[in-house]
Design a protein around this nucleic acid. Sequence first.
DNA 1: CCGATAGCAAGAACTATTCTAAATTCACGC
DNA 2: GCGTGAATTTAGAATAGTTCTTGCTATCGG
Lengths: 143, 143
Amino acid sequence: MLAKPSIKRSANTGIADEPSELRMTRQRREVYRVLLAQRDHPTAYDVFMRVKDGLPHISLATVYNCLEALVEHDLVRQVNFDREPSRYCPNLEEHGHFHDRDTGVIHDVKFKPGIKLADVLDLPHGAVIQDVEINLRGQLSLA
Amino acid sequence: MLAKPSIKRSANTGIADEPSELRMTRQRREVYRVLLAQRDHPTAYDVFMRVKDGLPHISLATVYNCLEALVEHDLVRQVNFDREPSRYCPNLEEHGHFHDRDTGVIHDVKFKPGIKLADVLDLPHGAVIQDVEINLRGQLSLA
DNA sequence: CCGATAGCAAGAACTATTCTAAATTCACGC
DNA sequence: GCGTGAATTTAGAATAGTTCTTGCTATCGG
Ligand SMILES: [Mn+2]
Ligand SMILES: [Mn+2]
Ligand SMILES: [Zn+2]
Ligand SMILES: [Zn+2]
């Protein structure tokens, strides 16, 4: 995924401020820690369950808020397969996802070295790409 | 998107039947006609509104049913950007989608000739890909 | 410490989609 | 052209992941 600038405008002036720092609260730190600890592309609810070990009073809404904050500050990527619950991935390298229909496991899929998207796709003239999502589905043949 | 075999198994035997034909009802035909007539990746609700011109009594649930049937029989592709409402595309060539943030327009994006996904992606060993989804977001620079 | 801003928790609300149940249409053998 | 069973349609209810609202708490700069 390419970087997305997270601009905020002050309510008073309407002038663009610096992109604000992410305040690392206990909840956000724990959500992020959980994502790094087990990189299996958990859903928000999965994260909620895992975070409760360390923060038993955290709410699901807070998990959603934390995930949104982490995504907006480009520490975490949101991964959507069709209309299933969103999943979250702390791998910041440009990569796609392969969903194994048999096991449900989602594998990270890297580009082969030296490949750029503009090399393989016939983009509209003047297109500036800000975000790339590559989602594959299939099976892992056991042969 | 790669072809997805739509196998049905008879309830009695559990033996695989032929993939059943899509029965072209008035509703399905009209939904399909609307998709072909204006290829702007409409949502189910967009389709509903357009189909009502020809079939004023059609229900939204039927539009969903028809779209699902068309997708399952590989006449139409479902296109999902993040968690926005699904959109529908009758272009059966293998292609991705570019969402222009400024205009909201979704453009079809073809692969450059001769490119295969396995050539550019580092797939897991033994992966058999059944479905490919490539979604881009960005802007069209006017320069 | 003070006032302001940001974040959290709990539950309600939202909304795209799916499900339910009853009515209608259809395919097909006679 | 019927009768019959299966498929489809319809309207409305239900579902479920996510977002919003509200009141409270934590944090920050001074
Ligand atoms: Mn898809
Ligand atoms: Mn995305
Ligand atoms: Zn990933
Ligand atoms: Zn398309």
